[in-house]
Simulated scan of single mutants.
Amino acid sequence: MIVLENLTKVFGSGDAETVVLKNLNFSVAEREIFAVVGQSGAGKSTLAQCVNLLERPSSGSVIVNGENLSALTEDELRNARRRIGTIFQSDGLFSRRTAAQNVALPLEYLGVTKVEIQRRVNELLERVGLSSRAHYYPHQLSGGQRQRVGIARALALRPSVLLSDEATSGLDPESTRSIVNLLKELRNDLGLSILFITHEMETVREVADSVAKLDKGHIVESGVLIDLLRDPNSELGGALRPSLSLAPTQDGETRWQLTYTSEDVPSDWVHILSTSLSSPVSLLGANIENLEGKLYGQAAVGLSGVKDQDVVREAARLKLSARRIGLDHSDAAFLTPSVEELRKSS
C-alpha cells in the first residue's frame, strides 16, 4: 500500500524557488491500480521520483506498507527501495546485456547465488511471456518486449509496490494493450499496489481502478474511475470518456448530450424516451463502453417540439444526465438549461 501525506517538493530557494508538488494526498490500496494523469509540466516525473525517493520530498510523507520512507536514513532507504519496483518510460535496459542478464542485474547487486538467480530469472521471464527471448539483446526485441523485460526486472526483488512512469508511452496500440493486461494480471496474482503515471487517457480507461489529475503540482480532481466516467459534471471524467462524432440535426431540432449515470440505464432507452416525450428521437452519435461489466458512456440525440425541463426529467428517470449542446456543430461546450430558460420554455 502507498500513502502520500501532504507531499510537497520545492526546487531552489528565495526568488528562484519553484514549488513543483504541493500538499499531495492520496493512497493506493493493495491490489489497486491508481493512475495519475496530467499534461507535460504538471509534475508527474517529480512525483515518480519522490515516491521511490530518488528525490526526497521537501515536506510530507511517502508511506509504503506503513513505513514512512521519507523519514529513513540513506542506509535504511536503500533496503526500503527494494519494496518498490519501477518501470520507466524508456525501458532502461543495458544494450550489452541479454534479456536474462538485464533481469538478473538487481539480484547480482544483492549477491544472490547464481543458482537462485537463474531460477528467479527463468520464473520472471516466463511470467512476462519471454522465456524464448531470454538470450536476445534489447536491439533484437520489439518495444513492447523490451518493456516486458523491464517489468520482469522491476519484479526481481519481489516488491509490494510497482511504480509505472509513462511505461506505455511511445508503444503501438497492440503493445500497449499487452502491457496493460500484464500489469492487471500482476496486480491480481501478486497483490501489488500499482501507481500508474501517464498522459494517455485511453490507457487509463483500460488499466486504472482509480485516477487523479495532477495540474501545476496540485491534485485537482480524483476518484474511482467508473464514478468519474458516469459523472456528467466531472471535468476529469469528461476528458476520460471517448469523444463523440455527431451527425447534423434536422431543422428545428435541439441537440442533447445524454450521459450514463448508472448501470441501470435500460437498453431500449431511446424507445422509452421517445414514447415518454411523444416525440421522435434522432440518434446523432453514441459511444457506450463496458468497464468490467459496468456500462458507461454518452450519446447525442436530436429532439424537436419538446420542453427542456421534460427532457431533463425523463432522462433522469432513465438514469441519464441531459445537457443541451450548443447549436454550432463544432462547439464542444455543453449548455445546461438555466432556471430562467426552463421557466420560459414551460
Rank of each mutant, 00 (worst) to 15 (best):
S142M: 13
V37W: 00
E341G: 12
F26I: 01
E206P: 00
L141F: 11
L53G: 01
S13G: 02
K213C: 00
R230L: 10
E341P: 05
Q309Y: 15
L318Q: 13
L327C: 07
E55I: 05
N6I: 02
E76F: 11
E126P: 00
P242A: 05
N68Q: 06
A80S: 04
I87G: 04
L284P: 02
R153N: 09
E5M: 00
H135L: 15
S338H: 10
E17C: 04
A167Q: 09
T259K: 00
G43N: 09
T8E: 06
N68T: 11
G66I: 05
P242M: 07
G170D: 12
L192K: 10
A16Y: 05
I194G: 05
R313G: 00
S45P: 11
T73I: 07
A239D: 03
V19H: 04
L4Q: 03
E202L: 12
L53D: 01
L47P: 07
K9L: 12
T86P: 00
S267P: 01
S90C: 04
S274F: 02
I197T: 06
E166Y: 06
L229T: 10
T46K: 08
L229I: 09
V281I: 14
T113F: 00
V312C: 08
A71M: 05
A99V: 10
Y136S: 14
R83H: 09
T113W: 01
I219T: 01
S13E: 13
L273G: 04
A80P: 01
Q147H: 06
A247P: 01
A333R: 11
L69E: 06
L186A: 13
R146I: 13
K294D: 11
R158P: 00
H271M: 10
F196L: 03
D331M: 11
R119G: 07
E126L: 04
G14W: 05
I219W: 00
S234I: 00
A42K: 00
C50F: 10
A100P: 09
A104M: 07
V3N: 11
D308A: 12
E174L: 14
V121W: 08
L335A: 13
C50K: 03
S276V: 04
G297V: 07
L228D: 00
E202V: 13
S276E: 14
L335F: 15
D251E: 10
P159F: 02
R177H: 13
A247S: 14
T203I: 15
N23Q: 15
P173G: 13
L244H: 05
D172S: 12
R97H: 11
D251M: 02
L318R: 10
A104P: 04
A332R: 14
F88C: 08
E200P: 05
L107A: 04
S276M: 05
I194V: 15
Y109H: 08
R119I: 07
C50E: 11
E221V: 01
E200F: 06
L284C: 02
G41L: 06
L7D: 04
D231F: 04
V103R: 02
N122Q: 09
R255H: 07
A333T: 10
V311M: 08
R205N: 09
K114V: 12
V180S: 03
S330N: 15
N122T: 11
E32G: 08
N102C: 05
F94M: 14
K294H: 13
E17N: 03
E253D: 08
L225Y: 03
